[in-house]
Amino acid sequence: MYTLKEKEMIFVFTGPHGAGRKTVAEMSGSTLGLKQVISYTTRPQRPTEFDGQDYHFITSKQFADAQERNEFIEIGTINHHFYGIKSNDIQQMFLAGHNIYLILNRFGAATLKELYGDRVVRVFIYADRDILEKRMRESGDSEENIRLYLSHFEEEMAYREECEVSFENLDLAHTVFDLTKTLDETLGRNLVDLD
C-alpha cells in the first residue's frame, strides 16, 4: 500500500444515490486540480457511461484475477456486482503530483478512512428522499432500482455524522461554490478566489 507523504490528501465523495455526488465531485475536482481515481466494477455498463471515465468495466474473471494478485485495497459488493480500487492507481496519481478524489459508497469511504486516517476527507453529499426519488426518475432509473436505492436511504444518511464535510445539494452551483472553498481551505492553498 502506498504511504501518503505530507500534504497528500484523498477526498472521498459519498452519500445516497441521486444526491449528485459524481457531478459535485467532478466540478469541485476540476476547479481544484484534483484527479479522480476510477473504481473497477463487474456490473454492466449503462448506455450513458464510458469505460475508463465512470468506471473500469471488467469481467468477473478479471476482477477475481486482480483480487488474487492483491491489487485491490478496497472491495465492495452492491446488488451482486463487485467494485474495487487498485492500490497502484492511487500510487500513480500521487507520483504524478496530484491530490486525488474518489466517488464511493459509505463502505468504501470507511475503508479508505481506516487505511489512510486523517489524510482522507470524506465529503457527504445529500438531498432529501423525495428529491432523490424525483432525480432518479428523471435520469431514467427503473422502478426496481429506485426502490433498491431508496431502501438504503436511512443507512446512507446515518453515515453523514461520521464524515468530515457534508453539503446538502439542492442547488448545484451553490453546492460546488461552497464546497470548493471548503476543500481549498483544507488543502491550505487558498488558490480559489471566491470574492
Rank of each mutant, 00 (worst) to 15 (best):
Q92I: 00
R137D: 10
E68T: 08
R46K: 14
I58V: 15
T41R: 09
N99S: 00
R69Q: 14
L115A: 08
I100L: 09
S139K: 14
A96L: 12
K61N: 13
Q45W: 02
N88Q: 14
I85H: 00
I58L: 14
N99G: 03
S39F: 07
K61E: 15
R46P: 01
Q91C: 05
K134N: 10
S39P: 06
I78E: 05
F82S: 11
S39R: 15
G76K: 09
R43V: 02
E114I: 09
K86W: 01
N70W: 05
D118L: 12
Y149G: 08
V123E: 01
R43M: 01
T59F: 02
F82I: 05
G140S: 03
K134F: 15
T77Q: 01
R69F: 13
F63R: 04
Y83A: 08
I103K: 06
T77M: 02
H152T: 11
S151E: 03
I131T: 12
G97D: 05
I146E: 08
E71N: 05
V37Y: 03
S142Q: 10
F82M: 15
A109Q: 03
S142V: 10
I125V: 08
F94E: 04
H56K: 11
E49F: 00
A96W: 05
S39E: 14
Q53D: 09
E114N: 12
S139C: 10
E71C: 06
L115V: 07
Q53Y: 05
A110Q: 13
N79A: 14
H81Y: 15
E154V: 10
E114G: 08
N99E: 01
R122H: 00
G84W: 07
N79F: 12
T77F: 04
A64H: 10
H152Q: 13
R46V: 02
T41N: 10
R106G: 08
L148H: 10
G76P: 03
G76E: 12
I90D: 03
Y149H: 15
F153P: 06
E133D: 14
K134T: 11
S87A: 06
N145G: 08
H98R: 04
N105M: 09
G117D: 01
S87F: 01
A127W: 03
E114R: 13
G108E: 06
R69P: 06
E71K: 10
G52I: 02
V37E: 04
N145S: 14
V120M: 10
E144K: 09
P44K: 04
